[in-house]
Design a protein around this nucleic acid. Structure first.
Length: 875
RNA sequence: GGGAGUUUAGCUCAGCUGGGAGAGCAUCCGCCUUACAAGCGGGAGGUCAUAGGUUCGAGCCCUAUAACUCCCACCA
């Protein structure tokens, strides 16, 4: 048996322990019909990612659940993996190539993918190594990647099936285009922000020379793509102009005035320029009125040949030029400041350009229905009602999902187009056709790849073997719970739900356990640009992974954000240190080989701690069941520090210094074992290090992570002794407080007399008053005592204690103090009496409550009597 | 424009289905008491955002108001 070092230094053992667990295969979870399955799939971190504090929280929560369930005897699989993160990774590779002076086009698609895979090989594992530092007990042998062979097969199968059912379609729509990433993005990847802009009022002249129609726009450059001006059909101001022709300024193209209900008469000038290729609403109007689409920009938002003389200008440059030319031409009426929402690319922040283009979409309405149904009928439970609402609201208002991306890194869309202009056949297939099955013409594959989130949506089943019907899929699906932050509910959680239901006919997970974000001390989001990010690896280096873990979840309530502070980590580390020292002491004292409890030898304080521990087991397990992980951790923490260390260890010292005592040793060790188990999911390293340094009973596993979770033991429940001993604690506390108030130094030891109806109890606890209440060993306990002139009297509801502190007593002060206590006691009684004499309370409050108040009254009366007696004696 | 959340001690936050307000840090007092000064003992500090209401009883339930935060939404 090894000995614990004098100092708690997690660096000395965390890595060693993790390597040992891994080597022994403790993380492995297998299909075992004798056990119940419990599976969590990790939210796959991006291969471009570095571990940040959010991952630390996310993974700590999952590891707690997995370790707890493993200890409870489940076959607990935590399935790890990484995400290819198409857009982020591609940007990274492009940037790296730029340093070399080459572009995507220079190296070509194959060359690019070669580089990407190489990049993945070199850096994709970084984050995995970092997760290990946290103590994550993932089954690494099952590690997956969203672009590995199996996941890619799943993606193909799902795409093809949805296409064949008509749930995936290709069509021309106005989508969000990022001119920097040069790809389409979905609606949720477009983040709206209110910005200060302008309203440019422009006159569009009528062809017949009969004046102008004034329109207002926030994006004047889109004028180049206008194909109509719309007014409301009932707008008296414009009714007579409907059907007339306008001359589009600058380009001198003829466009019609049309009538459409979409126009709001009250807003702007009541006349709207219609740019079907660059505005989703205008697009709809265009469809209704059969207007031509004029796309005026290229991939990087540079004006194209449709923009006349503005061709080649960047969009904002073009805006300036257009405005200037309008002004010069006398068509600019006015410029008004105007706040409006601008969409930005989630990844790079660039203002997105709405742009009509041919893309692939998932038709959402039908898929969303069952995804809402399972929440309503309880098959899928959101731990947080609040986020259930977010989810439901999002699902109810769902729109079709644009899934094609103009990127190379990702799952290539398995669609093939016949090049024969007379055929134009589209084939969607997992096998690349050599020629068009219809006309025999040449075919080419779609250039685009799929949205990263498309493969993430399949993660709970693709990682378990889908589309194959594997034993793992059969056993572990549906998984138990998913543990993401709230910011990816629409991106990931929602999509896994409808995909799971569609392809597995079953929810992907039973519970959704959403957590908040970790913010900095001022409550700001951590970000690179602010430089306020906390690097978890630094924290581990300084304080240890256990302290980091405890910090992230301590005080985490289910859905709110948490503030990070160094003070919190320090507190967590100090707690680890406390436990370390307690264990070092207890292990040194307890020289037994086999922990065993013999109830007949137990003292009242042994029974007290066992009973308290028993209750702790019940509560902590219930808290974990309810996903109140922070509460559970808090209870274990408080028990270890405030009950076990502050009281029980001290209480055993007399017996241990008296030459060893088996029942004390056994109780100390048994409770230590149990506390370590309860703490293990939260702080795996320190608990293991202590565990492997202590003796256990034969049936315990050599590793704490594989040992059995504590259960409530009826044989170790001692409610009577528990409440009896609380009386002793109460009196010790009261004596301490009095001595402290009177500035009596701990070194000053005095004799003590105790008066109580429970005199036998207090007599049996004499030694504790010596040890913990400054008694010099001369203790008298009796049912009936009278105070001397020079005694200080301490009163609790169950006892009075007399301390001969004659020289320190100021009789007047003492009497004033007692008067004050008397006053308080009287107030208490009056308060309770008032309640009990209130007829409404007696008749309407539950009986137990009334009984409770009566007991409180009795206790208060006893205390009052004690104080009165003491006052009399003083006089 | 809709919707959600927050508001409790100087700071960070608990407070379960309503029954006389809690912790940690900070602060103050006293202690190197043979596991731990990263510690031990003790204390001070709160009209639970505001105003109404329901109730025998409200930090908790209802209504309104204010401040802060977030999500969703195409008013050009």
């Amino acid at each position: 048996m090894k000995q614990l070092d004098k100092n708690y230094s997690p660096k000395e053992f965390e890595n060693r322990i993790y390597a040992d667990w891994e080597e022994k295969g403790y993380f492995r979870a297998v299909v075992d019909k004798a056990k119940k399955p419990y599976c969590i799939v990790i939210p796959p971190p991006n291969i471009t990612g570095q571990l940040h504090i959010g991952h630390a929280l996310d993974n700590t929560l999952q590891d707690i659940l997995i370790r707890w369930k493993r200890m409870q005897g489940y076959s607990a699989l935590w399935l790890p993996g990484t995400d290819h993160a198409s857009i982020a990774t591609e940007a990274r590779i492009v940037a790296a190539m730029k340093d070399e002076g080459v572009s995507k086009d220079d190296v070509g698609r194959d060359g690019f993918l070669e580089r990407a895979w190489e990049w993945k090989r070199l850096y994709g594992g970084t984050i995995v190594q970092q997760l290990k530092k946290l103590g994550s007990s993932c089954d690494w042998e099952r590690e997956r990647f969203t672009m590995d062979e199996g996941c890619s097969k799943a993606v193909q199968k799902v795409f093809i099936d949805l296409y064949n059912e008509g749930l995936i379609y290709r069509g021309e729509r106005v989508i969000n285009w990022c001119p920097v990433c040069r790809t389409s993005i979905s609606d949720i990847e477009c983040e709206h922000e209110e910005k200060d802009g302008f309203f440019w009022h422009i006159n569009y002249p009528l062809k017949d020379g009969g004046g102008y129609i004034e329109i207002a726009t926030t994006r004047p450059e889109t004028l180049l793509g206008d194909t109509a001006v719309a007014v409301h059909p009932n707008d008296e101001r414009y009714k007579h102009l409907i059907g007339k022709t306008l001359i589009l300024p600058l380009l001198n193209r003829e466009i019609p005035v049309i009538a459409d209900e979409y126009v709001d008469k009250e807003f702007g000038t009541g006349a709207v320029k219609i740019t079907p290729a660059h505005d989703p609403n205008d697009f709809e109007v265009g469809v209704r009125h059969n207007l031509p689409l004029v796309n005026i920009m290229d991939d990087s938002a540079v004006i194209n040949e449709n923009g006349g003389k503005y061709a080649g200008m960047e969009r904002y440059e073009a805006r300036k030029a257009v405005v200037k030319d309008l002004e010069d031409g006398g068509l600019l009426v006015k410029i008004q400041p105007h706040k409006h929402n601008v969409g930005g690319c989630q990844r790079c922040g660039t203002v997105v350009e709405p742009r009509a283009s041919l893309q692939w979409f998932v038709s959402m309405k039908e898929l969303a229905k069952p995804a809402m149904e399972v929440v309503r009928d309880g098959r899928l439970k959101w731990v947080s009602k609040r986020f259930e609402n977010v989810y439901m609201q999002w699902m109810e208002n769902i729109r079709d999902w644009c899934i094609s991306r103009q990127l190379w890194w990702g799952h290539r869309i398995p669609a093939y187009y016949c090049q024969n202009p007379d055929c134009n056949h589209v084939l969607v297939s997992d096998i690349a056709p050599e020629k068009c099955p219809k006309c025999g013409g040449a075919v080419i594959q779609d250039d685009d790849t799929l949205d990263t989130w498309f493969s993430s949506a399949l993660w709970p089943f693709s990682t378990l073997g889908f589309p194959e019907k594997t034993a793992e899929l059969e056993y572990f699906y549906p998984t138990a719970v998913i543990v993401p932050a709230y910011d990816i509910i629409p991106f990931w959680v929602a999509r896994m739900i409808f995909m799971g239901l569609k392809f597995m006919d079953e929810v992907p997970f039973h519970d959704v356990f959403i957590h908040g974000l970790i913010r900095d001390e001022q409550g700001r989001k951590m970000s690179k640009s602010l430089g306020n990010g906390v690097d978890p690896l630094d924290v581990i280096e300084k304080f240890g992974a256990d302290a980091l873990r405890l910090t992230t979840i301590y005080g985490v309530s289910q859905d709110s954000d948490v503030r990070w502070s160094d003070a919190k980590v320090t507190a967590a580390r100090n707690f680890a240190n406390k436990l370390w020292n307690a264990a070092r002491y207890v292990l040194g004292q307890c020289t037994i080989n086999n922990v065993r409890i013999s109830p007949e030898n137990l003292t009242v304080e042994d029974k007290w701690i066992l009973s308290r521990f028993n209750r702790l087991v019940k509560e902590v397990t219930a808290n974990l069941d309810a996903y109140d992980l922070g509460v559970a951790a808090g209870k274990v923490h408080d028990f270890i520090w405030n009950v076990y260390c502050d009281w029980y260890i001290e209480l055993t010292k007399p017996r241990l210094s008296g030459g060893g005592c088996e029942s004390a040793q056994n109780t100390l060790m048994l409770v230590m074992e149990g506390m370590l188990k309860l703490l293990h999911p939260f702080m795996p390293f320190i608990t293991e290090e202590i565990w492997t340094s202590m003796p256990h009973s034969e049936n315990e596993h050599e590793s704490i992570m594989m040992s059995k979770w504590c259960e409530y033991e009826p044989a170790l429940d001692f409610p009577e002794e528990e409440s009896a001993f609380e009386k002793v604690i109460e009196l010790i506390g009261a004596i301490r407080a009095r001595r402290s108030e009177m500035n009596v130094p701990p070194s000053k030891r005095v004799s003590l007399k105790i008066e109580s109806a429970d005199f036998a109890l207090f007599k049996s606890c004499a030694v504790f008053f010596e040890r913990l209440a400054g008694c010099n060993g001369q203790l008298t306990v009796s049912e009936q005592l009278s105070g001397d002139d020079d005694t200080v009297i301490v009163v609790t509801a169950h006892a009075r204690a007399f301390l001969p502190l004659g020289e320190l007593i100021d009789k007047e002060k003492e009497s004033a103090r007692l008067e004050k206590e008397l006053e308080k006691a009287k107030n208490d009684i009056e308060f309770i009496n008032k309640k009990l004499s209130n007829e409404g309370f007696i008749t309407k409050a539950p009986a137990a409550q009334v009984e409770n108040e009566r007991a409180k009254l009795a206790k208060a009366k006893e205390k009052l009597a004690g104080i009165e007696k003491s006052l009399d004696a003083l006089k």
